[in-house]
């Protein structure tokens, strides 16, 4: 058995890990205290109507922990339960955490893994996302850092994508996708000519972590490992950004510049070329260090304008 343990690939893949495994590997060892944990059995009251099973934590872990010795609040969505979608209880736990962050001035780490609103409780989920955005922005206006971590199977879709873009800093892997409307939904509504959801290379170069990093939609690109996320999160908290009128004016300018520079692009590769990156065709295949080396100095950066 010890021989077996020695041979394991001990890198915890963020993509593969569960919400609990992600938090365990992200924060200081054993430092998590969970709020309204599974033993409280606060499950969704709505899924039974659809004959669907509940999960004891409704698909999200929230709590307090230490990150490199600093007291933080943490949340992690479980992308495999109902696609990590926001339901009433799920959403309310994150609302509470962000309200507490403002009250206690503690920074927050949110591990996103979500398809957006949970259909079976759509109104409650939609409203929860609105409450989360409000609580998050108020916490940031009070000086709290909110760091989003994206690299799960479900990506960060729908309202999740909006919440993510409200964070102070976003850390992504190439697997991490950030978007509002999902590929299948665009294809269903607008046709396969508009969006071929089966063409996965296309999906990832349009919505994936590398593209988001290149256009300034994410701030740090890391390898698919919990250790890399941890290091990047520590780095993010040690270089805080502010949210004020100046930040949003800068973001306005940044987003308008993006429209002006790339507004006519048909494909992500045209944007990458316009950034001056050359060549672009093998960008998706590159490992993180080669990618960062090639993108260095050429990408659009949010630089705190978020």
């Amino acid at each position: 058995m010890s021989v077996i343990s020695a041979l394991r690939n001990e890198t915890t893949s963020w993509y593969e890990a569960s919400a609990r495994q992600r938090i365990d590997a992200l924060v200081d060892r054993g430092s998590l205290t969970e709020f309204v944990g599974p033993a409280a059995r606060e499950t969704s009251p709505h899924l039974a109507i659809f004959g669907l099973p509940t999960q004891l934590d409704d698909g999200i872990v929230v709590g307090e922990a230490a990150l490199d010795g600093r007291a933080v609040l943490v949340a992690a969505q479980e992308g495999r339960f109902m696609g990590g979608a926001f339901g009433e209880v799920h959403g309310a736990k994150l609302v509470g955490l962000l309200r507490a962050a403002r009250a206690t001035r503690r920074d927050v780490l949110i591990c996103f893994d979500t398809g957006g609103v949970r259909l079976q409780e759509a109104n409650a989920g939609e409203l929860a996302i609105a409450e989360i955005i409000r609580a998050l922005v108020l916490a940031r206006l009070a000086g709290v850092q909110v760091v989003g971590l994206i690299g799960g199977r479900a990506g960060c879709y729908g309202g999740g994508g909006l919440i993510a873009a409200c964070c102070s800093t976003l850390i992504v892997t190439e697997q991490g996708r950030i978007s509002v409307t999902g590929p299948e939904v665009i294809e269903t509504n607008k046709g396969v000519e508009e969006f071929d959801s089966k063409d996965r290379a296309f999906v990832w170069r349009t919505m994936g972590g590398k593209h988001r990093y290149l256009i300034g939609g994410a701030d740090r690109l890391v390898a698919d490992s919990a250790a890399a996320f941890r290091a990047a999160a520590i780095g993010a908290l040690s270089s805080p950004t502010v949210l004020d009128a100046g930040t949003l004016d800068a973001e306005q300018a940044r987003l308008e510049r993006r429209l002006a520079r790339f507004g006519t692009a048909e494909d992500a590769t045209e944007i990458w070329s316009a950034l001056g990156i050359d060549p672009v065709d093998d960008l998706p295949a590159l490992d993180e260090s080669s990618f960062l080396a090639r993108a260095g100095g050429k990408r659009e950066s949010a630089d705190g304008a978020r």
Partner: peptide
């Protein structure tokens, strides 16, 4: 290898998986 990407990296970039197997 735990993913198609791992296989691609193990091949030194010589293996080029079809689009349907990619998540990058």
């Amino acid at each position: 290898a735990r993913s198609i990407k791992d296989l691609m990296l193990a091949s030194g970039g010589l293996y080029r998986p079809p689009s349907r197997f990619r998540n990058w």
